[in-house]
């Protein structure tokens, strides 16, 4: 969480400084606890993870090198997307790390498909999948189709719904008419869990149960976290549509502050150690940033401009 917050602060300041980051910056401030609590239950190369826009913390917890985020935002060729795609649209599918597209809900069936293929091949073992969505994304047909299919196949899939009250500027009252999103789990024939998304310990506990149950064959698990994103949809957005009173309540429940207090109260760490972690994170982020700023950006003359992997079928390459 600390590394995620520190990295995202850097991304925000790079965006505001202008120049190097093209396109938007989409941050997970306020959602780190809910995201990281899922990510720590996932194993790189063993499980399947399809994170979404506000999952920087989950991505780090899953095992993505922090520098890959910077590389993708800056579009350098050393990054996983090599300048062909940017910001949060990144992944390494060969390692079970799916790269989201912008169309909400559509990643769910992809993660499910990876698990389905493993089951057919007999390689599923105790692996699980996880993917994330917001309250807005639950309104898509793709989300419904994917979750229903995963439920029919009883796949070991954990679906995180970060109910952050606003889909861009649209409040939940214009998004759904049911009382609680988690009630939908019953309709899909899957298990549902609800948690205060600003409470790290509660999130870890809920995800531990959800992943355990998914891995032993209880089918998809829906985890709904109540929280508020502490910022705009992207850094271009001042979130003026969120009432000040609501912002104040949630700023005082910043999940990072809550988590640090929890760790202190339980005697897991000390104030001095926390400060050291923050300092370490800042050094790591600064070092990564200065490295990435020196790395090469893509050269259109060296780009293959080839959308197919079969070179002989690329028009003009028939030989």
């Amino acid at each position: 969480m600390i590394r995620s917050r520190t990295l995202e602060e850097k991304l925000g300041s790079l965006y505001r400084a202008g120049g190097r980051i093209v396109g938007g910056v989409y941050l997970g401030r306020g959602q780190e606890a809910f995201s990281a609590a899922a990510g720590i239950h996932l194993r790189w190369d063993k499980d399947v993870y399809g994170p979404l826009i506000r999952d920087q913390a989950g991505r780090i917890a899953f095992g993505e090198p922090l520098i890959d985020s910077l590389r993708t935002y800056l579009g350098v060729v050393t990054g996983p997307m090599r300048g062909r795609d940017g910001n949060i649209h990144r992944g390494q599918p060969k390692h079970g790390y799916m790269a989201m597209i912008s169309h909400l809900g559509s990643l769910l069936s992809v993660v499910a498909g990876a698990l389905f293929a493993r089951r057919i091949k007999g390689t599923l073992g105790d692996s699980a999948g996880a993917t994330s969505i917001g309250d807005g994304g639950t309104s898509t047909g793709a989300f419904h189709e994917g979750l229903n299919m995963a439920a029919v196949e009883k796949l070991p899939l954990v679906v995180s719904i970060a109910n952050n009250q606003y889909a861009y500027s649209t409040p939940t009252s214009r998004q759904y008419a049911c009382e609680n999103l988690v009630d939908r789990a019953h309709g899909y024939g899957i298990e549902g869990h609800s948690v205060d998304g600003t409470d790290l310990l509660a999130c870890v506990k809920v995800y531990r149960t959800a992943f355990e149950r998914a891995r032993v064959g209880h089918g998809p698990q829906m985890v709904v976290g109540r929280l508020l994103r502490l910022g705009g949809h992207g850094e271009h957005d001042d979130a003026s549509y969120i009432p000040e009173s609501m912002k104040k309540i949630h700023e005082s429940r910043d999940c990072l502050t809550v988590a640090q207090q929890q760790a202190l109260d339980l005697g897991w760490t000390t104030q001095a150690e926390l400060e050291a972690w923050h300092k370490q994170a800042r050094q790591e982020v600064d070092q990564a940033t200065s490295q990435v700023l020196k790395e090469p950006t893509p050269d259109p003359y060296r780009e293959t401009w080839q959308a197919l992997s079969t070179t002989s079928l690329v028009e003009g390459n028939e030989g």
Binding site: V48, S109, G113, A114, A117, K121, A142, E145, G146, M149
Partner: peptide, 22 residues
């Protein structure tokens, strides 16, 4: 499959990533 053309294709993509040829 369920009557879910969107999920059917998404599923195939995920399976292909795992080395299947749906």
């Amino acid at each position: 499959s369920p009557i879910s053309e969107d999920a059917m294709i998404g599923m195939a993509v995920g399976a292909a990533v795992e080395g299947a040829r749906p």
